[in-house]
Design a binder for these strands. Structure first.
Lengths: 332, 332
DNA sequence: TTGTACGCGTTATCAA
DNA sequence: TTGATAACGCGTACAA
């Protein structure tokens, strides 16, 4: 049985409230008493019980990163973009005295977000990606514990987002290929996701500006998982529509494309140029090195943390969009 | 102010203990009362407060992954090995109803591990790597909340580890290069870390078996951070001792070697063959693709979780070692 | 400067 | 089958 504040109090010959005050750095505690208490605390290695403290103070010093699982598929956490974001988030919340909590949540279940909020497991929460849950997020943001989202900025969304300017990003990618003379550029991604829809929008705009009409048959729905992405590329090939470029909605998808095309003996970038999205660490090392639209993940993590903390302190926070940049490498 | 169990009780016309029982699935609650309570709960979207529940039950349903920060350097969480491990851990603890908590801890501070245990922030904890803290870990494992470690198996260690057979791994790497005719093989890694020391031990043994005497000048201390690793390779080159192979203690270090050597115009693997350690996702995509010793991260995460849960349930757990395998690619 | 007493929101024990 | 009551370990008015 662990030692409690009451034990320390008894050993120090004071009341536990005095111990509490001493440990909290309260100035009203007499120097002598404080010294005595601290000595006993050190000697017994006493540490304040965070569960009790959390209940009393109504805060856990925990920030949750929620991972929405689509239709509770047994999908492992693997996308390097997500993992990199997680790493940077851990860094920035630690800087502010919080710990990070990771929770995989089945989005199928009703009210998953609100339920999490009410469970009071954390003081604030961060969602990576809107998934298909825009409405539910907007609803949840109104009432429960503070919430910020990495994702697309939508009109009148009712919650704070931090994210890249996805339209600009999609446009950057497509314009680059068009400038290189490509005229039949495929787009691979799931347009049901707001971020991807915007990247596709950018892809369309770049075509318009270049006076090129994109072939709708070249836009294919592709999930983020490597196997889904590969399947999409296979499908693209199977359809038989000629293409000389690919704008992928993420680096993982682009990588899948690189692999499938190489396996078919197609020359990259000569026959098909490929542009990814994210610029994960991997991107610079693929063969050929991947041209991609860089998202500022670290900055994003810092902005998310800042916005969340602002809301947690009762202030307001505004959504922000980060300008993406094109990293030209060998695949285009 | 959020709704509490008392509120639900009042609205249902019963005592809160009945509500608690109903929500816990306790069979002694009359079907009618239960239905009434559930209806009210649903209608108001009531969710049990986990802070209170945790205090009362003495468990948080949280498993902590502690990240030891050496001399509290502002180092970001970046090693892909660690991030991949984290992802798999999240998967496996979720399977058992727990959430993951990530905490960066300065190992400099006295008793950091014991302090964390006593804070009761989590029900169990996982350490990735022994760092330089073998003694403290052994001490902490005796008393506080259950604890398991990913790392090297040491004699009479007094705590449970899961890890690769590092001696075999180091041996695999060196033997492969020796078999390829290399005779002056460098080793890059920090031998103060138990895992790395064992990999180096394997490297030595392979040399002995091949009847080759390794040059001690070719063993260099290299940290896991990319810049430290690059500095080590630069140092190796600056020293001027000839070498025709490198055994790196991690893929990140191997990658740094690939970069530095390529920048110097050295041909890999013709002039220098490189073998890494980990087989992170990146390894298959470097240029040239990295030959490396594969650690079974996913299996490791599952074994760690299993061992920890066993201890948390009051049972016993044994250390386990996982056989590594050599993935031969283009860098050797 | 310190002590008393209460409450944070649950679950568990014991009666009824 | 349900209710009253006491913890769980702490922080904080308020009183002394």
């Amino acid at each position: 049985m662990p030692i409690t504040m009451d034990d320390i109090a008894r050993l120090s010959g004071v009341n536990k409230s005095t111990v509490s005050r001493a440990l909290a750095g309260n100035a009203t505690v007499a120097p002598g008493t404080r010294a005595r208490i601290e000595e006993i605390v050190r000697k017994h290695g006493y540490v304040v019980n965070q569960a009790a403290r959390g209940l009393r103070m109504q805060r856990s010093m925990l920030i949750a990163v929620l991972i929405p699982l689509q239709h509770d598929r047994q999908q492992p956490l693997s996308d390097p973009f997500f993992m990199e974001m997680l790493g940077y988030l851990a860094d920035s919340v630690t800087l502010h005295g919080y710990d990070l909590m990771l929770s995989k949540i089945a989005t199928g279940s009703a009210q998953w977000l609100t339920k999490f909020q009410r469970s009071r497991r954390a003081d604030g929460l961060i969602l990576i990606g809107q998934s298909l849950e825009h409405a539910h997020i907007a609803e949840a943001a109104k009432t429960g514990i503070p919430l910020v989202v990495w994702g697309a900025k939508l009109p009148r969304q009712g919650y704070v987002t931090v994210g890249s300017d996805n339209i600009a990003g999609g446009s950057l990618a497509a314009a680059h290929l068009l400038a290189g003379g490509r005229r039949r550029i495929a787009f691979l991604g799931d347009p049901r996701l707001p971020e991807i829809a915007q990247r596709h929008e950018g892809y369309m705009r770049a075509h318009t500006q270049a006076g090129v009409r994109p072939d709708p048959n070249l836009t294919l729905k592709a999930g983020f998982a490597p196997d889904e992405a590969r399947a999409a590329v296979e499908l693209l090939l199977a359809r038989g529509n000629a293409f000389d470029g690919i704008v992928a909605a993420s680096d993982v998808i682009a990588l899948a494309a690189l692999q499938v095309l190489s396996a078919r003996g197609m020359a990259i970038p000569r026959e098909v140029a490929v542009v990814g999205f994210d610029d994960v660490g991997l991107a610079a090392h693929t063969q050929p090195a991947l041209t991609t639209v860089r998202q500022e993940i670290r900055t994003g993590a810092q902005l998310l943390t800042k916005a969340l903390l602002a809301k947690m302190e009762g202030g307001i926070a505004r959504s922000s969009q980060i300008a993406p940049t094109l990293m030209v490498r060998e695949s285009s």
